[in-house]
Structures are given as C-alpha cells and as structure tokens.
Amino acid sequence: MKLHRLWGLFLRYYYNLLRSYDRLTDMFFWPVVDLLMWGLTSQYLVKTGALNNNIVLALLGGIILWIFPWRGQYEITVSLLEDLWNRNLVNLFATPVKFIEWITTLMLIGIIKAAVSFAFASMVAILLYQTNIYTLGLKLLPWAGLLIVFGWVFGLLVSGIILRYGTKIQTLAWTAIHLISPFVGVYYSISTLPAWAQRVAAYVPASYVFEAMRSEIAGNPVPLSALLAPFLLCVFYLVIALYLLIRSYDHILKRGLISVE
C-alpha cells in the first residue's frame, strides 16, 4: 500500500463530500432525527414514571453507538455506488491503485465520518436531554472499534453483492445493516428476544457491545476481556467478507469493469 495513493483517494471522497450537501447533511441528519424521536419519547415515559434516567441513557446511548456500524457500512457501500453512478470505476482501477487501497480508504473515511457523527450526536444528547454518553468513559473507544469493524463486515459483503449484480440491488447500500439490527439489541436487552433469536444474537458481535453498555449503565461493569471473543468473531467475519469482496472483484474483472457500470 502506498500512502500517496491513499491520500489521493481520500481527497477524491473529501472533495465529493464538500460538494455533496446530501452526503454532508446525512452525517448529521439521521442521528439527530433518531435522537429527537427517541429522546422525546423517553422523556415522556420518564414523566409518566415508566422509565428512569438510566434507561434513557441506555436508549440514547444505543442510538449514538449505532452510528458506528451504520456509518462503517454506509460509507463503503454508498461510495461504491457513487463510483458506479459516476462511471468512475475504470478511471480508478486503470491507475496504480490497488483494490485493497480503495477499500482501506473507504474504511478510514468511515471511521472519520462516524467519529464526527458520534461527536455531534453526543453533543445533541447533552444539550437537549442532559444525557452524557461520555460518562461511560474510555470503554467507549473499544466498543466503537468493535462496532465499526462490524459495520465494515456488512459494507464489504454488500459491496461484493453490488459489484456482482450491479445497481439493481442498490437499496441494500442503505438498508443492509438494519436487517441485522433486531439481533443486535440496540434499544433492548437480548434476553427479550425469543430463544432462537438469542442464539442468533450470540453470533452477532455488536450485540455484546450494547449488552455491555446497558450493564455498565446499570452499575454492573463488564470487563473488556469479555469483548475479546466477540471481537475475534468480528475479525473472522471481516476476513470472510474481505475474501468474498475480492472474489467478487476478480469475478467482475473477468466481465470487465465497464460491464458493472
């Protein structure tokens, strides 16, 4: 991998972001919409006595942490789509750029955008609901790390599917990560799921982070070492997703990059 090429690719997406008000606003828009909706709902429930402040923090914390897998996936898949819409894949890969450099850039941009969205959403939560996710401390960092890798897994898988089958299934670029969200338990404990769904959730690394966050808020901190197994599982998924994406890329090279556009 060459740094100057990563920088060139970064500039390409950075310039595009500056000139795309839709991409710029969706970094802030959806987290704020979710926060407004869930924040107001939970405030209402607090007033009726149905919720306490810890549950509000768990709900809003769930919304804010969900930004990481969402952005991790979204950045990879929507950037791929933009290159397809722009008929720019040929321009990209008829250069010294390696496929892995392109993927790496998209992953890194996902981290930056997720961090910006996270910072913004957490500030909104503080300002509107006096709910401070930073009280959870430095554990937020490894949690965020695992969640973003989880997002990448979906981003890579969906990109592989789009590369193979083209833009006719582009809806997946925006929605794929939400298909797994019932098993992640963003807003509720995994124990509320039916038994079969709990078994599925056991293989969903992100579910451990949200469980750990709720435990932490309830005053029962979960040691970081408990996240090691789900993290390794996530890395395992990442390797498989990367392998499948590279297989898809090799497959479209047999058809020609122009054909996928």
Binding site: H4, R5, G8, L9, L11, Y15, N16
Partner: peptide, 22 residues
C-alpha cells in the same frame, strides 16, 4: 466513455488523480 466524478471541479479531479502516481 468513462466519466470523472461530476461534482468535483476540474482542478480537484486532476489533483486527486495526480496523487495516484509518484
């Protein structure tokens, strides 16, 4: 038959492309 990112200016397109090479 191949396009460049259409939202980017000419200068931006040539700049990012230039970084793909030494």
């Amino acid at each position: 038959y191949v396009d460049m990112p259409w939202r980017l200016s000419v200068k931006e397109n040539l700049t990012w492309s230039s970084y793909l090479y030494m």
